[in-house]
Nucleic acid binder design. Structure first.
Length: 303
DNA sequence: AACTCGGGGCA
DNA sequence: TGCCCAGAGTT
């Protein structure tokens, strides 16, 4: 690849990158908290919650020792509530299996609950400044456009190999922050701002689109052949899982909420609330399997 | 490979 | 409304 791409991208990042709180930290615990919160959740929505979380649980020992219910209550509004449970389980793993010392390599980090390929790489890189390669949705998009082009969607293995090839030795932290930031601010999913892109001159996709501009206003080929049917969120299974947890969060700590009460409250939450008690039981059982609540004959409560 | 898992923001 | 968002775990 062009040898000056890292310089151009990192220079751009130094000038235009956002001042995000986790970029000031090399504490693997803080990085873990940030990366888990950022899983499918926008940066702007995470920032205040990240600061509040570290204020409540400043280190891995504090998080490991706290009642799980408190973490689930804190997680309200962030979504994907299993992340809260897994985050504490990861902290407990570090305390119990690692003597409180965070794993430093990707393979060991990968063993932590809720830590997948991306998050393991991100911790190794952003906390320990290892020159490792990984790809979130931003990095993947930049890699595909810059080096594949043509709107190609690379396979996971292809993207990983590409990412490994382009990490500049000794500058992994800056490179990965920079390429991710480019994807978030310039090389966006919709309407990429190629005029502001520091590496547009070497971009395969940019070159191809300039050679063959997409047809506009001529009834051109539809962008998307197969349409995914998106079911409405309200009334979905996810919706009621979230509603049940919100009800348990509002209940007095330690006090179970009876199933009849849950059913009644859910019925008031939406017009099409399911009335089948077996359906509610199954929903609660699945939440219990995820570690998000404890269920018995008396009802359900946070763990 | 395809689902499931929240919730909010935005054109 | 549909798409997107610093993904991970299960089947």
């Amino acid at each position: 690849m062009d040898t000056d791409i890292p310089d151009r991208l990192i220079d751009w990042f130094r000038q235009h990158g956002r001042d995000l709180p986790w970029r000031h930290s090399r504490d693997p615990y803080a990085i873990l908290v940030a990366e888990v919160m950022l899983q499918q959740t926008q940066v702007d929505r995470v920032v205040p919650r990240y600061l509040a979380f570290l204020d409540a649980w400043p280190d891995v020992a504090a998080l490991a020792a706290t009642p799980t219910a408190e973490i689930i209550r804190f997680w309200s509004g962030l979504g994907y509530n299993r992340r809260a449970v897994n985050l504490q389980r990861a902290a407990q793993w570090v305390i119990a299996e690692c003597g409180g010392a965070f794993p430093r390599d990707v393979a060991s980090l990968r063993r932590l609950p809720g830590v997948g390929a991306y998050t393991a790489g991100a911790i190794a890189c952003f906390a320990f400044e290892a020159d490792v390669a990984f790809a979130d949705t931003n990095i993947r998009r930049v890699l595909e456009r810059q080096w594949l082009g043509g709107g190609a969607a690379g396979r996971d293995a292809t993207i990983q190999q590409l990412a490994e090839r382009v990490v500049p030795p000794g500058r992994g932290w800056w490179w990965n922050q920079a390429i991710m930031e480019l994807g978030a601010l310039v090389c966006t999913a919709r309407a990429p701002a190629c005029q502001r892109c520091p590496i547009a001159a070497s971009c395969a996709d940019y070159a191809q689109r300039r050679a063959a501009p997409p047809l506009i206003g001529l009834g051109g080929a539809p962008q998307r052949i197969a349409e995914r049917r998106s079911t409405p969120f309200a009334g979905s299974r996810r919706y009621y899982r979230g509603r049940v947890l919100e009800l348990l969060r509002a209940a007095p700590p330690g006090a179970p909420v009876a199933y009849a009460i849950l059913a009644q409250q859910l019925a008031g939450a939406a017009s099409a609330a399911p009335t089948d008690p077996d359906w509610l039981r199954q929903l609660v059982a699945d939440l219990a399997r995820d570690g998000l609540l404890v269920a018995d004959d008396a009802g359900a409560r946070l763990p």
